[in-house]
Nucleic acid binder design. Structure first.
Lengths: 368, 368
DNA sequence: GGATAAATTGCACACGTGTGCAAGGAATTC
DNA sequence: GAATTCCTTGCACACGTGTGCAATTTATCC
């Protein structure tokens, strides 16, 4: 109760109390076979009674191992990241590692401070779960001299290990689902133009249409930024097109949410008048009106996979440098058949089967 | 490039290179006035060139200060926590502290592991930002012997420092807003019965009605659990009542989202037929259909305040043990005047002014 | 019972950093 | 020029833990 927080008890204190040397205590607590089992048991009891807790700093100093993994993210406020973090954390904990969280909030100065903190605490590896990680960031991280694994990174990053969801395959999934429902006039509201995920989704969209014998209509591809406004503008633009689309594939769920809102205020019913499909499956997708049909990224699995990859690297093993995980379709209520006589010209199912998947799962060459 | 990660450079390496003792290097790098400025500058240059990064473990070992604050949360997946964490983090960083994140995911075994990790890394203080923190958790945390500050804790926790939003005042805000719009038939869909926040919101609801001369109708108070289902069930129950309410105050935004959905599927327009107000102002409240009017908790400020409080405690200063921060109304589009002739019987504005606020901002007595 | 092997323990050093104290050197004063 | 002060530097120890090696005790064997 009123005990002052003086100094924590160390193995020397235990040694003094037990009448042995601190080496013996150290060995007893670490379960070394070099101590008499009876003595060991006695010491363990005493340690527990004295409330001993090992000092991680002292241990890591002598073992030259911290057991800490740096986890770099822009902000926790992104609900998309939370699941990834959960996956990373779970695998890390199982393997006896701890996470050091470094958030930058996209502030260059804080990014630097974060990297310095990682360096000072001697992290053994780093996972970057922030797609918008600054351009300066990566070189600094590399200078740490520890293995790095990126999750869903937006740029081609050669010679770096990374895990990503398969945006191309996800887009194929989305568009062929719409084709299967009978749509042929399918639009795409894009994400940030420079983002690789956007480029891959666009590619999947285009090629799925072509494979189904449909020539993509440039008027049905509108730019965006991944935020709700983009969905609103996108719908407005699409409604001005000479021929209106009957379905819209959105770069992500936030865009789809904006699209839902714009559709509603334009007096369109979803999905009766217009089908809308998103991408990501954020927590909230289940609660939109109507609940959003979307392509789920395997967030949790990506976290787990990235951490497993890092563990391999930490053990000096070789790994494939680039891994893509498949997305899956989550059917809710924002998609349905097209309004009137929009009969598909060819069977979309056969088209889907014919599709090649140019996105190989292994990419780049091992670094020397 | 091909450089092996051998061993990091230490002050001894610098000392050897500079032809001085490691003490001089240490002093130079720490900016001690006990070194010749020219020597100091030379050493700093050399250190930078050699890529020196201080070892936090070694430093904390000798200074007996880790500069680490433990942050305990159930899960990052709760978007409500993200803002709190941001506030905590910002103040911590300003004061030169770092955060050690301990998530438990409500698993007792992991809770224990988390507390042990906090103890081993010798955190200097702890912030608990998880309302659902296990009952066992707190005693273990207390055993760490460091200051603890709770954020929005759901139980009365005597002799512990805490920061919370003022649920009572928030409820008063919500209900008097509805009164001002002209409603008199106001329902409450409650949260977890044992949660203090629910009790305070219920109290605010009841007393505001009474102060306006309205006798609360027990049929308009339905139980819930803070999740969307509760909102759906709640609306269904309320629609079966002999006299229907014209407005619903929900325990939180997730409940309100369920309520919105149920209202829609019952064919009610919001806010024309039914006004709905939430609590929390989660990220998603702005994107519901219609956008949700709600009571915003000062999440970011709560984080900042809790961390400031902890900083005071770390410096051995005294603080008020219990601090409540006011909520504020965020008007969006889910509330409006009642449908037909629901004329208020008394002026709700004057009622609001007469309201006492029995929730004092200071509570409990200082521990000895 | 003595010699040998095995089990158990302690000594001493290491990890990287910080700091009190004494020693050495330079600058100042008379 | 000698004495005094101040500035600068190095020595040595400390923090808490782990471990190779030698020393000691105990068990085993003939």
């Amino acid at each position: 109760m009123g005990r002052r927080a003086s100094r924590r008890v160390s193995i020397k204190d235990i040694a003094r109390q037990a009448g042995v040397s601190h080496s013996t205590v150290s060995r007893a607590l670490r379960g070394s076979p070099l101590v008499n089992p009876r003595t060991a048991e006695r010491i363990r009891r005493l340690a527990a009674r004295m409330g001993y807790v090992p000092n991680a700093a002292a241990r890591s100093l002598v073992t030259a191992r911290t057991g800490i993994i740096g986890l770099v993210i822009t902000t926790l406020a992104d609900p998309f990241l939370a699941e990834i973090v959960r996956g990373v954390e779970e695998v890390a904990l199982e393997a006896g590692y701890r996470l050091f969280l470094a958030t930058s909030n996209a502030d260059p100065e804080r990014e630097l401070a974060a990297v310095r903190a990682l360096a000072e605490s001697r992290v053994e590896g780093v996972i970057v779960a922030s797609s918008r990680v600054g351009e300066l960031y990566l070189p600094h991280l590399k200078a740490l001299g520890v293995p790095i694994v990126l999750i869903n990174h937006q740029r081609e990053a050669p010679l770096i290990y990374s895990v990503a969801s398969d945006s191309y395959q996800g887009a194929v999934l989305a568009v062929s689902y719409l084709l299967r429902l009978g749509h042929t006039r399918i639009a795409y509201i894009a994400g940030p133009p420079m983002a690789r995920s956007n480029q891959r989704r666009l590619a999947g969209y285009l090629e799925t249409l072509r494979a189904a014998g449909i020539t993509p209509n440039p008027a049905w591809i509108v730019e965006g930024n991944g935020r709700p406004e983009a969905g609103e503008w996108g719908i407005q633009r699409l409604l001005e097109a000479p021929i209106r689309p009957t379905a819209v594939f959105c770069y992500n769920d936030m865009t789809a949410i904006g699209a839902l809102r714009a559709a509603r205020s334009a007096g369109l019913r979803v999905p009766e008048d217009l089908s809308i499909i998103g991408f990501d499956d954020i927590l909230f997708a289940a609660y939109t009106e109507p609940p959003l049909t979307t392509i789920a990224q395997p967030k949790y699995e990506m976290g787990r996979t990235a951490m497993s990859m890092l563990l391999h690297l930490l053990q000096g093993e070789r790994t494939v440098p680039y891994l893509q995980l498949p997305c899956r379709l989550v059917e809710r209520a924002s998609c349905g058949p097209p309004p009137e006589g929009d009969v598909p010209t060819i069977s979309p199912l056969s088209a889907e089967r014919r599709l090649p998947c140019p996105a190989s799962s292994v990419d780049g060459s091992p670094s020397s």
